[in-house]
Simulated assay, not measured.
Amino acid sequence: MISQVRKVITVALLGAAALTACGTREAPRSAPPPPSAPVSRPPTLAPGPAGLTPVFSHGPRTRGKVVALTFDADMTADQGPRAAAGERFDHPELIAALRTLKVPATVFMTGRWAEEYPVQARAIGRDPLFEIANHSYSHHAFAADCHGLPTLPADRMRADVERAYAAFRTVGVPDAMPYFRFPGGCYDRQALRAVSATGLTAVQWDVVGGDAFATDADAVARQVLDGVRPGSVVVLHCTRSAAPTTERALRRIVPELRAEGYRFVKVSELIGAAGERG
């Protein structure tokens, strides 16, 4: 009797081993995760001569009718009292118009502006329609005699740029673009050398909107429409107190350029195309 029991146990064990070997008793193994896709970095230009910060003014003229609208969100480090007194350095109606018209755009923002309007800065930075780039922290000039702006000493220029990125991160914009617009568009060789270690591409423009302190929206629109060429970068402003007509001008600029066959893009697309030329 005992030997018969042993035979039954032995057969059972052999059967279990066979089932395990066939994979029916073993828990299914999950497939290994696919390899992570490489993180794409925004396009930038190679350093200029002697390693100076490269300067970008417009995209290729032969890659189709594309244009980048850019908006400077200006606020200097010492304009806090004016904001506290009610002056508006933001322009939510302009951002709403861009969304309504479905126009991608690049906003060059100062760190001080982001601190004053953190909810708006975060909303712009998280909207895939837009990209935020650096316009310094203080909006002080990086070269002398720049539209009356206070001049920043050369040894503080890099820190001012980095402080703006820190302000963006603090308000919830961790992935601002590696592009920098000099306040007032003013720079010299010393300024290009001072910010070269940041690895940024300086972004200028080839079409001046002329909206700063303008009171005639049609004149602003006409200046843009007359100046745009394929690959153009247009500079406008996102500041109600200093550029009150921009939103109205935009509502004329966009449909007329689209009627001419233009497509609106962000600066990053133009820089990417410029980098592919060689």
Rank of each mutant, 00 (worst) to 15 (best):
S138Y: 09
S3Q: 09
F182N: 06
A212W: 14
V224R: 01
P49L: 12
P150K: 14
F56L: 03
D160A: 02
R41W: 06
L152D: 06
S232G: 07
A12V: 11
R126Y: 00
H135C: 10
A219D: 13
A194L: 10
P244T: 02
R41I: 15
E256R: 14
R122Q: 13
G275C: 01
Q120A: 14
A77P: 02
R277C: 00
T215Q: 14
A144F: 01
D145H: 14
E162K: 02
C146I: 07
V161E: 06
E93R: 11
A84T: 05
E26S: 14
A123M: 13
V11A: 15
F182V: 02
I132D: 03
A105L: 04
V234Y: 08
S40N: 09
R112G: 00
P104Q: 08
D155L: 03
H237M: 03
G261I: 05
Y187G: 01
R169F: 04
C146V: 12
L149G: 06
T44N: 04
M157Q: 13
H135W: 07
R277E: 15
G64D: 04
L270C: 09
T62Y: 07
T106H: 11
D145T: 03
G15C: 14
L129A: 05
E26I: 15
A221G: 05
A154Q: 12
P38F: 08
M177P: 06
E256H: 04
D211L: 03
P104F: 04
G86W: 04
I124L: 15
D226G: 01
R252Y: 00
E269R: 12
A242Y: 06
A159H: 05
V173I: 14
A12R: 08
F56N: 03
T170I: 00
